[in-house]
Design a protein around this nucleic acid. Structure first.
Length: 263
DNA sequence: CTGTCAATC
DNA sequence: GATTGACAG
C-alpha cells in the first residue's frame, strides 16, 4: 500500500512537471511570436529619442541628424495617394534644435529622407511628418535616386509579401566626416538599413550597409550582419528580443529567406 | 519613386 | 515665403 501511494505521488508530480514545462513553453512562444506591443526601438547613444506619430528617431546633435529612424511598415500603409511635398521644417521636439534645411542649399547634397515619404502615404499628416529636418541626411543625388531608392522600393515590395516589417535606417556617424552648411551637418560615407520580420514561427532580419556613392550593383551585394552595423555605430538593435534569438539573428548575413526577385 | 529648380504672386 | 509646374535618374 505504501509503495502504491508513493508511485501515485511520483506520477502526479511528473504530470505536474510536464504541465508546468508545457505551460511555460507555450507562454514563451506566445511572447516571442505574438506579442503585439513588441518594442522594436534600438538603444540611443545620445539619450535623445523622439517619438512622432508615425515614426521614432534618436537625434545626434553633433552630426545634426538622427543616428537612427525607426518605424513599422504594414501592408495597409502602402497607398497610391499623392500629396504635394511640403517644405522641410525643424523638428520642434528636438530640444537641441534640428538643422535648418538651408544647410543643404548649394551643398551638392540632397535632402535624403531616412523614413521615406513613400512609406507614409496613408495620410497627409503622416506624409508631412516625414518632412522634418530630423528625418533627413545629406545624400548625393545619384545615390538617393539610385541604389538607395531601389532599396526603399524593395522594402515596400517585401511588405507586400511579409505583411508587416520593422525598418531601422541611418547614416553611419563616425569621426571626421565632411560637413555642410553653417550648422555643419555631417555627410555619412555609408548608410544602413535593417529590416525585421517579426512573424511566427520564423523571425527573420536582413541588414544592408551601402557606401555613399552611386552603384548599379544588386542589393544583395550589400547585405551584412546586424553585428557589423552595431560595431560601426555603437547602437544596440532589437535589445528586447530574447537574447538567444537576438544573437542568432544579428550574426547572420544569410538572406535566402528574403526574396530578391531580379535583384 | 527619389529629388531640384525657376517662375510667379 | 508659398505655390505651381518642368525636369532628371
Amino acid at each position: 500500500m505504501k509503495n502504491r501511494k508513493t508511485i501515485y505521488a511520483i506520477i502526479a508530480l511528473l504530470f505536474a512537471c510536464i504541465l508546468y514545462i508545457y505551460d511555460n513553453y507555450d507562454v514563451e512562444e506566445k511572447n516571442i511570436s505574438f506579442s503585439s506591443n513588441f518594442n522594436y526601438l534600438p538603444t540611443s547613444t545620445t539619450g535623445q529619442i523622439i517619438h512622432h506619430n508615425y515614426y521614432s528617431l534618436s537625434y545626434n546633435e553633433k552630426f545634426e541628424q538622427a543616428e537612427w529612424v525607426a518605424y513599422e511598415l504594414t501592408l495597409e500603409h502602402l497607398s497610391n495617394q499623392n500629396f504635394k511635398r511640403p517644405y522641410f521644417e525643424k523638428d520642434s521636439k528636438v530640444k537641441t534644435q534640428s538643422a535648418n534645411y538651408k544647410n543643404y542649399k548649394n551643398s551638392g547634397y540632397n535632402k535624403g529622407h531616412l523614413c521615406p515619404a513613400g512609406d507614409r502615404k496613408f495620410s497627409k499628416e503622416a506624409f508631412n511628418e516625414t518632412f522634418l529636418t530630423s528625418n533627413i541626411t545629406p545624400q548625393l543625388y545619384e545615390f538617393n535616386a539610385g541604389i538607395w531608392n531601389r532599396l526603399e522600393q524593395k522594402v515596400r515590395y517585401w511588405v507586400q509579401k511579409y505583411d508587416k516589417l520593422y525598418v531601422i535606417t541611418g547614416g553611419v556617424l563616425s569621426k571626421n566626416l565632411k560637413t555642410i552648411g553653417s550648422e555643419k551637418v555631417a555627410v555619412p560615407t555609408q548608410f544602413y538599413k535593417i529590416i525585421l520580420d517579426y512573424h511566427q514561427p520564423k523571425i527573420k532580419a536582413i541588414a544592408f550597409l551601402i557606401p555613399h556613392k552611386a552603384s548599379e550593383k544588386g542589393l544583395y551585394n550589400f547585405v551584412v550582419t546586424i553585428d557589423e552595423i552595431e560595431n560601426l555605430t555603437g547602437i544596440d538593435f532589437f535589445p528586447e528580443l530574447p537574447d538567444e534569438i537576438e544573437s542568432k539573428l544579428e550574426k547572420s548575413s544569410n538572406y535566402t529567406n528574403w526574396n530578391f526577385r531580379n535583384f
